[in-house]
């Protein structure tokens, strides 16, 4: 199973015009050319004209260079940065509801170790949240799985370049 935290995946930070249908154009392109999206997060930027789409792509499905160049052909794509794991800070948020009838204390201990949070408690369930590096989130999810996860939702990765480490803006050539 591919997981968002896999180091083999590449993260693209795609600045797009904030216009109707832009996300559909990006999604369409990936579907049409057979590129796999591992995760995708979209949000406005501090400039109201633009949104940022953070896409984790599976480079096994196509060379990153082709993906970037094809993305650039979309008229509404303004800028693309490739964020390599060691030159960027990456975060992801996960919330999960775990069965805790038997082992609640063990789960609480894990929550402590990972500096996660408990959001809701019932007699036999705990809803926990963890914000952190995607690989840490992977590890936490993996450990929770042993207790039985009822429901899990992850946001997909968001990332920014490390301060003082401006990644090459991937130009179209």
């Amino acid at each position: 199973m591919t997981r968002p935290g896999d180091l083999s995946h590449h993260t693209l930070s795609v600045l797009v015009e904030d216009k109707a249908g832009v996300l559909a154009r990006v999604a369409d392109l990936f579907a049409r050319r057979g590129y796999n999206i591992v995760s995708l997060a979209v949000a406005p930027t501090n400039d109201h004209r633009f949104s940022r789409i953070t896409i984790v792509v599976d480079v096994e499905s196509a060379p990153l260079e082709q993906i970037v160049k094809q993305l650039f052909k979309l008229i509404n794509v303004v800028e693309i940065q490739e964020l390599s794991p060691n030159a960027s800070v990456e975060r992801e948020l996960m919330i999960a509801t775990v069965r805790s009838a038997q082992d609640r204390s063990q789960i609480v201990e894990l929550v402590d170790i990972f500096e996660a949070k408990i959001l809701a408690v019932s007699k036999d369930r705990l809803t926990v949240s963890l914000e952190g590096h995607p690989s840490k989130v992977d590890d936490f999810e993996e450990l929770l799985r042993d207790y039985g996860i009822d429901d899990v939702q992850r946001t997909g990765r968001i990332a920014l370049p490390k301060i003082g480490n401006t990644p090459a803006k991937v130009r179209a050539e």
Binding site: P63, E65, Q66, K69, Q70, F72, K73, A172, E173
Partner: peptide
């Protein structure tokens, strides 16, 4: 003129967009 054509099928030794 379309850089996406460079290397799409055949890797060029020199690519000019």
């Amino acid at each position: 003129i379309d850089p996406a054509e460079h290397g799409k099928v055949r890797r060029p030794d020199v690519a000019i967009a």
